[in-house]
């Protein structure tokens, strides 16, 4: 059977977007329509006249992805074609929780029956690794660079899943491309649950984060194993499941493999920053009962 996302795309070697999209389509199956905003995924898969998609695909703009998806859903409903076909909006963190915030909020509030998959690689990778609202604390990006008087990004990640829970979404979940079975199961569940559902997939970017192309999956796992990226499910607003991490690894194990955190190991005071990052992981353990 031919893959639903075809080879020949221009993603970097070791691309997280391709993996996330591949898992999403494996879960959704061929009877789906993919809506995608401007970003790496769209650029690398659809250079005219080529497309990597073996499912119907539409890209409009950067900030309107969920609105376009709601229009697709409305069209199918109006024409009596809605039912089996799954509608999946798939976008990066910038398109989802920064510039597309209004659009996704509106679509979820209106209750369209679709699934939004956020491929979170924690910065604007398509434009050259600029900071987004999903960039983690103390990460160095091209617009939040570490420097003589800066440890990089000064704010923690925006808690997008919580925002989607607050919209009354029946199913909100976090996942990671480092856990294919987890991600495929959750996307499958998300597309099967009626109403607007949200899957937030942590997706390490080799180019933006600065690690070897072979380490995409390994780094993704480390984020989960250090409890910096908890895997949990929220159903009708309640926490129903969280992946246990019996022996959490120290955050250094995750940080030291990435160029974007390199300064924490070389700058004076970097150890204090690492302690703060460890505190974020510890807070996740507490909040989601990871141990």
């Amino acid at each position: 059977m031919k893959p639903l996302l075809q080879a020949g795309h221009r993603g970097c070697a070791g691309c997280c977007d391709a993996i996330a999209a591949k898992f999403t389509l494996m879960a959704a199956g061929e009877d789906c329509i993919v809506v995608s905003p401007t970003g790496c995924l769209e650029v690398m898969t659809t250079p005219y006249p080529e497309s990597s998609w073996n499912v119907p695909f539409i890209h409009s703009l950067f900030e309107n992805n969920a609105a376009v998806a709601s229009g697709v859903e409305a069209a199918l409903k109006a024409k009596g074609e809605f039912g089996k076909t799954k509608i999946i909006a798939m976008g990066g963190d910038g398109a989802t929780l920064d510039i597309g915030m209004r659009s996704i909020s509106g679509a979820f509030e209106r209750g369209h029956d679709f699934t939004y998959v956020c491929i979170d690689n924690e910065a604007y990778m398509n434009t050259g690794v600029q900071r987004s609202g999903a960039t983690p604390f103390a990460a160095s990006t091209t617009t939040s660079p570490a420097g003589k008087v800066s440890f990089g990004n000064i704010r923690p990640k925006k808690n997008m899943p919580a925002i989607m829970v607050a919209h009354g979404s029946p199913y909100v979940t976090t996942t990671s491309i480092g856990y294919p079975k987890d991600m495929i199961r959750k996307v499958k569940k998300a597309v099967d649950v009626e109403g607007p559902t949200y899957v937030h997939a942590h997706s390490p970017c080799t180019t933006g984060w600065g690690f070897d192309t072979s380490k995409t999956i390994e780094i993704a796992k480390l984020a989960v194993e250090t409890c910096l990226w908890p895997l949990y499910e929220m159903e009708d607003g309640e926490l129903t499941k969280a992946k246990k991490i019996k022996n959490p690894k120290p955050v250094e194990d995750y940080l030291k493999m990435q160029r974007r955190f390199k300064h924490l190991f070389t700058m004076e005071g970097g150890d204090e920053m690492i302690k703060k990052i460890q505190a974020l992981a510890d807070a996740n353990i507490e909040k989601f009962g990871l141990q």
């Binding site: 075809q6 080879a7 020949g8 795309h9 221009r10 250079p47 006249p49 497309s51």
Partner: peptide, 22 residues
């Protein structure tokens, strides 16, 4: 190749792009 209305593309057509050369 002539341009399709609105730039609509055929599915799976990046197969012409042999990325093995990278």
């Amino acid at each position: 190749m002539t341009i399709t209305l609105g730039g609509v593309c055929e599915p799976g057509s990046t197969l012409v792009n042999k990325t093995g050369g990278w």
